[in-house]
Amino acid sequence: MDEEFYIGGKNAVVEALKANSFIDKLYIAVGAKGQIIDEIIKLAREKGIPVQLVSRDKLDEFYAGKHQGVVAKTPPYVYKEVDDILAIAKNKGEHPFVIILDGIQDPNNLGSVLRTADACGAHGVIIPKNRAVGITPGVIKASAGAIQYVSVARVTNITRTLKELKDVGLWIIGADMDGAINYCDADFKVPVGLVIGSEGYGISRLVKENCDILVKIPMVGKINSLNASIASAILMYEVLRQRNF
């Protein structure tokens, strides 16, 4: 990963400031206005973060996506450990609720998963180091600030991690179009690790073999699969429903 790491977008930057994430410097486009821009500048000054006005062309050099007139320079994302995620659940007195992503490659999908994970109270997300997207500026932007509140661990071997999660009592539930039961019939009130497969390929064979159960989302249309972030959202909200209603 590059030494210089930039995040762009009003929501991503303001949430980073609110969460006390380390920010080296803020760049604001000349002429940028609005309530959120004012809030960003105010928060930065309160925290002693330098703010520099630059041209939009300069912001384009820093950040390739839609920066909305604001870019923050930060250190690269620091991944958590799986044990850190389990500790969050323990400290809250809750059964672990962990999302395991098996090879998600689209930054927008990962960002969307993080947003839903935050909304549904997941304790963390686990991603693989290889053949999958990591926490990039694009993911941070797509998460709309959720990355500041959802712990992400990056592991070398998802299969081994599933076995370790089982050893500490998690029930591993995978989403698969050929699953044995409908997702709403599964018990998500137990400690759970929810496995979501990659775009187009689903859960890999070894990972699938290490799931305790596979669940399916009923579909009556012409297509036979859902976008990974949509499928994960349906399942995460089922966990939330069962645990809170």
Rank of each mutant, 00 (worst) to 15 (best):
E3C: 06
E4C: 07
G8D: 01
V13I: 07
E15W: 01
K18R: 15
A19S: 13
N20K: 13
S21A: 08
F22L: 11
F22T: 12
I23K: 01
Y27G: 01
V30N: 13
V30G: 04
G31M: 08
K33F: 05
G34V: 08
G34R: 04
E39A: 14
E39R: 09
K42L: 08
K42P: 05
R45M: 06
E46M: 09
K47C: 04
I49M: 02
P50S: 05
Q52V: 01
Q52T: 07
L53E: 08
L53I: 01
S55I: 03
K58G: 01
E61S: 11
E61N: 13
Y63V: 07
Y63I: 06
Y63S: 09
A64R: 13
A64D: 13
K66T: 14
H67D: 12
Q68S: 04
G69N: 07
V70E: 03
K73T: 02
T74L: 09
P75H: 06
V78H: 02
I85T: 07
L86N: 07
L86E: 09
L86T: 12
I88V: 15
K90E: 15
K90R: 15
G93L: 02
E94T: 03
H95K: 14
H95C: 04
V98H: 00
V98M: 05
I100G: 10
D102F: 05
D102A: 07
Q105H: 11
D106C: 13
P107K: 09
V113D: 14
V113E: 14
R115D: 02
T116P: 10
T116C: 10
D118V: 00
G121D: 12
H123E: 05
G124E: 05
V125Y: 00
I126Q: 12
K129E: 14
G134M: 01
T136H: 04
P137T: 00
P137Y: 03
P137A: 02
I140W: 12
A142C: 07
A142Y: 03
S143K: 03
S143M: 08
G145Q: 08
Q148K: 03
Q148Y: 05
Y149D: 00
Y149T: 04
V150A: 04
S151I: 02
V152W: 05
V152M: 04
R154S: 13
T159H: 02
K166T: 10
D167I: 00
G169N: 11
W171L: 12
I173N: 06
G174K: 00
A175N: 14
A175C: 12
A180G: 02
I181H: 00
C184S: 14
C184E: 12
K189E: 11
P191S: 12
V192E: 02
V192I: 15
L194N: 08
V195Y: 03
G197F: 08
G200V: 10
Y201L: 13
Y201K: 15
G202F: 07
I203D: 15
S204P: 05
S204G: 15
K208Q: 13
N210R: 07
D212Y: 07
D212L: 09
I213Q: 11
I213E: 06
V215M: 03
K216E: 13
M219V: 08
V220Q: 15
V220T: 15
L226W: 01
N227Y: 00
I230C: 06
S232E: 01
Q242K: 02
R243T: 08
N244E: 13
